[in-house]
Design a protein around this nucleic acid. Sequence first.
DNA 1: TGAAACAGTTGCAAAAATCAACTAATACAT
DNA 2: ATGTATTAGTTGATTTTTGCAACTGTTTCA
Lengths: 146, 146
Amino acid sequence: MKAEVRPLGMTIGSIRSAFPKMMADLFKDKEIKYTFDQMVVLLIVRFCQKTSPVQQDIAEIMNKNKSVVLRMIDVLEQDGLLMRSTDPNDRRRNIITLTKKGYEYTELTIACDHEVTVNLMEGLNESDVKTFFKVFDHIQSKMGVK
Amino acid sequence: MKAEVRPLGMTIGSIRSAFPKMMADLFKDKEIKYTFDQMVVLLIVRFCQKTSPVQQDIAEIMNKNKSVVLRMIDVLEQDGLLMRSTDPNDRRRNIITLTKKGYEYTELTIACDHEVTVNLMEGLNESDVKTFFKVFDHIQSKMGVK
DNA sequence: TGAAACAGTTGCAAAAATCAACTAATACAT
DNA sequence: ATGTATTAGTTGATTTTTGCAACTGTTTCA
């Protein structure tokens, strides 16, 4: 473990700006008028259903502050991609649920994502790709700890 | 495999603002008064010496527009971390060179980066880490093509 | 019962990114 | 060689994004 850890900064630095840009370009092609981050919100709502994250949670997952997330969700709600409803068990919390339309947008996003990913991963063997995702998830979970 | 695989975008969506934030926190501790992005500029200048990227190139690498990079470089030049000089072979281009002070800041940045990275990679075995970086390199080269 | 904590909201201020227009230099096609 | 297009860099104005602090309503807990 001590051996090969090199600075991630530059590496991550480029992927972290390049990937969203590639996604944004694809969104434009397909006339999706939302930002990458807005679609990430939808993805989080969809894929973290079990824990049903509220705005605060989403903000933590995305490392944004809650005002930012609130404003993204305002737009998404206005456009009917998701719905807010007060949690009956804790009326401070907003339960966020995807609408049919919102779900469709997650599908579109995943399609774009897949397109970009396949492109980037082309030429690698499956097991390496698996490991990559594993490590990436690990990093993500470590970041959550703060 | 086809079922509910979390798209890469979701992970990237969560780490992409986390990493600069973690770096910024470390910078604050060590009283480095620059942003993560500014330090990335220095790193690019240092590590892409062979191709001696000009402002435009740096902008492309970082997926920012050239005005943004220009202003970052203004600051870095004012503070004596790098120098601009006109390329004698093409007087439109500015050759960017690190000063001694600038180099020292890249060292500091790399140290911070390493600290963060080690932390994030903790708990992974060496071969996974190796694979991860291998895949990362691959992705990066693919992104370069675009 | 009251203090502290928490999710959400709002408006304002600060920071960052974008855009269009411009200069100066170079490349290139005719 | 001449003029057109392209390129790197620069600037100022504008817009977008972000961050902060204060506030509400609700819950927790001592």
